[in-house]
Design a protein around this nucleic acid. Structure first.
Lengths: 214, 214
DNA sequence: TGCAAATGTGAGGATTCCTCATATTAATTG
DNA sequence: CAATTAATATGAGGAATCCTCACATTTGCA
């Protein structure tokens, strides 16, 4: 919960949308190579401009091999999204794990918002993927699930801080906060940095007030 | 500020991204026909599945004629987005125009949120366009400008209600609110209706509290 | 070693956006 | 109203790109 993620998130758990689970070492390396090359290409010109033929060439493999592991272009992007999300969730869960009072919650969440903003600013791949997030139903679902999971973690922390609060309300509110957090990041990176920072601060204020109120 | 928009918004002012301004009556009719057919196709299967050849066929014209008026597929979608936005802005401006005290502001804005939610639920084309909004840089810019314009109108109303408030703060906060409003709509229509309504309510509470606080 | 399973290859099929050379219709002018 | 210019219409096909598939190569194992 305190470092900027590496350019290519380390291999997560159950990869999404892989055509066939690689078993030999050679093919496992290839999958990582493909993802790494795709990541670079996305960082350079965006996922839209990324051609499957470019990925294959850069990875030093044939188009056919590419499609052996990833059934379509979207699955590469989704796998990257999954990995970034997993990193983010881990960071959020770590940070909120030991929160037990309102002061701690407020401080931790404010810190999280700053970390996420820094991440979005630093990672062109993350920016690109989340910008295109709404275009693809599958990506949208990944996004939604991520907000939900993070929302559940936040709801837990808020319940710990305020045991009297209505649980259903906390879950709803936390889900919303996580989703709006993403939207705020999109907005903040779309405007000039000064305004972006101010908008992130505005969001922070709104959210902290929401947590106090409930 | 009280009706659901028609399926195809009426011809606005300066159409975005038209290849050549239609001058003869025949061609003006064609432009409207194209937009209307595109709208239907989008409502049926989404803008992604909409083929330019389908639009041409449905409109009873040739592909070439289509491209006479719209330089590319995106421009059709952008034109529809512009029209919907213009309708929304008009509705917002009308509603907030006569707000002069905090009670009125709160009531009006709560009403606006409900209207927008109803609009998103009722208009598959609007949903589709806004879902794809992040995919295309040009659409994103249209979206951003719309939030900015609406934010300015909201900031005006808030300044009227609370003349002591810092103007820069109001503008920043209002811009954020408008953007997050869109994000909330996206979220709300992506989940089941009961949860969607609860999320919209959650957003309403957050926003009204924000307006009270400043 | 030899065989089966896993993996690799890239030409080309399929889809779709969009162009352009040409044809038709409308407006204008002498 | 004939002739000329301008506006509009057409659709075959160029270009870009995703992805498949029939066949080749490599690896693991009995």
């Amino acid at each position: 919960m305190n470092e900027i993620a590496p350019i290519v998130p380390e291999s997560g758990d159950k990869e999404a949308a892989m055509r066939k689970e690689p078993t030999q070492r050679r093919s496992k390396e290839r999958v990582e190579r493909i993802l790494s090359c795709a990541s670079t290409l996305i960082a350079d010109n965006g996922s839209d401009a990324m051609r499957m033929s470019d990925v294959a060439e850069k990875a030093g493999i044939s188009i056919g091999s590419l499609y052996q592991y990833f059934p379509d272009k979207g699955s590469i992007i989704r796998t990257l999204a999954d990995r970034y999300n997993a990193l983010g969730r881990e960071c959020i869960a770590d940070t909120l794990k030991n929160v037990h009072d309102m002061n701690g919650l407020q401080a931790s969440f404010a810190e999280l918002i700053d970390i996420y903003y820094a991440l979005f600013l630093a990672e062109p791949v993350m920016r690109d993927i989340w910008s295109g997030t709404q275009a693809d139903k599958a990506l949208r679902d990944i996004d939604l699930l991520d907000s939900r999971l993070n929302g559940a973690v936040l709801a837990d922390a808020r319940a710990r801080v305020n045991p009297a609060a209505d649980r259903a309300f906390l879950e709803n509110s936390s889900f919303l906060i996580m989703h709006l957090g993403q939207a705020t990041m999109h907005l903040a990176i779309s405007v000039d940095p000064t305004e972006g920072a101010a908008l992130v601060d505005g969001f922070k204020r709104m959210v902290l007030r929401e947590m106090l109120a409930a």
